[in-house]
C-alpha cells in the first residue's frame, strides 16, 4: 500500500509525509505523476493557486484521470482548492474535478485565518469517522465555494460558513491541515489511510 504525496509546490511537505508515515503508511514524495503505481494520492497545502496550477500543467490530464478513476485522494488546503475551477488568489486553472470558484475570506475577519477552529459535521463522511466537532488547525486566506453543496461534509464558521471538509466518493478535501491538527488530525489521516487500504 503506497501513498503518493504530490510535491507540486515549493513549501513544507515534510509534515504531511511524516504524519502519514507515523501512522504506518508507506509514503513516496514525487514532483510529478508519471505512472499509476500507487494506491492513494495526497495533494498537500502549500504555495499559491497560480504556482500550483503551473506546476501541474504538464501532467494535468493524467492527474485528473487518476482522481476520477477512483484513486482515494486527499487534498489539503490549497490541495483541496486546486480541485475546483479557478481562484481569486490569482490566474490559472484548477483541476475542474468539482465546479466552483475559490474566493477570499471576507474583509470583516482577520486574514489569514490562522489557528484552531471547530468542525461542524453536516453529513456522514468516512473521513470523519470518530471525529466529533473537533478543533483543527487552519492557515488560509481563501476557501472554495462548491457549485454542488452536497459535497460538503463539514463546515467551519469564520465570518462566513467555510466548507472545511468535502467528501465525494473517493475524493476528500480539508481546508484545514490534518497533519497539524493533533489528535483529530491523526484520526482523519488514519481514516484516509483506511480508505486507501480498502
Amino acid at each position: 500500500m503506497k501513498i503518493l504525496v504530490l510535491n507540486y509546490s515549493v513549501g513544507n511537505i515534510y509534515s504531511i509525509s511524516h504524519a502519514l508515515s507515523r501512522l504506518g503508511a508507506s509514503v513516496s514524495v514525487e514532483k510529478e505523476i508519471s505512472s499509476r503505481e500507487f494506491d492513494g494520492l495526497v495533494m498537500p497545502g502549500v504555495g499559491s493557486f497560480t504556482s500550483a496550477s503551473e506546476a501541474i500543467s504538464s501532467y494535468r490530464g493524467l492527474l485528473r484521470d487518476v482522481i476520477l478513476s477512483g484513486t482515494p485522494t486527499l487534498g489539503i488546503c490549497l490541495g483541496m482548492q486546486i480541485l475546483f475551477n479557478s481562484s481569486d488568489e490569482g490566474p490559472g486553472s484548477g483541476l475542474d474535478i468539482f465546479g466552483g470558484r475559490v474566493v477570499s475570506l471576507p474583509p470583516t475577519v482577520k486574514r489569514p485565518q490562522m489557528g484552531w477552529n471547530r468542525l461542524l459535521k453536516t453529513r456522514y463522511s468516512p473521513l470523519l469517522e470518530g471525529v466529533e466537532d473537533a478543533w483543527v488547525y487552519f492557515n488560509h486566506s481563501y476557501y472554495p465555494e462548491p457549485t454542488d453543496r452536497s459535497i460538503v461534509a463539514a463546515k467551519t464558521e469564520y465570518g462566513v460558513d467555510i466548507p472545511s471538509v468535502i467528501s465525494h466518493r473517493n475524493i476528500f478535501g480539508t481546508q484545514f491541515h490534518p497533519e497539524k491538527s493533533s489528535k483529530a488530525g491523526r484520526q482523519i489521516l488514519q481514516n484516509f489511510i483506511n480508505q486507501v487500504r480498502r
Partner: peptide, 8 residues
C-alpha cells in the same frame, strides 16, 4: 468568529 486564542 469561533477561532480559539492560541497559547504558544
Amino acid at each position: 468568529m469561533a477561532l480559539a486564542k492560541r497559547i504558544i
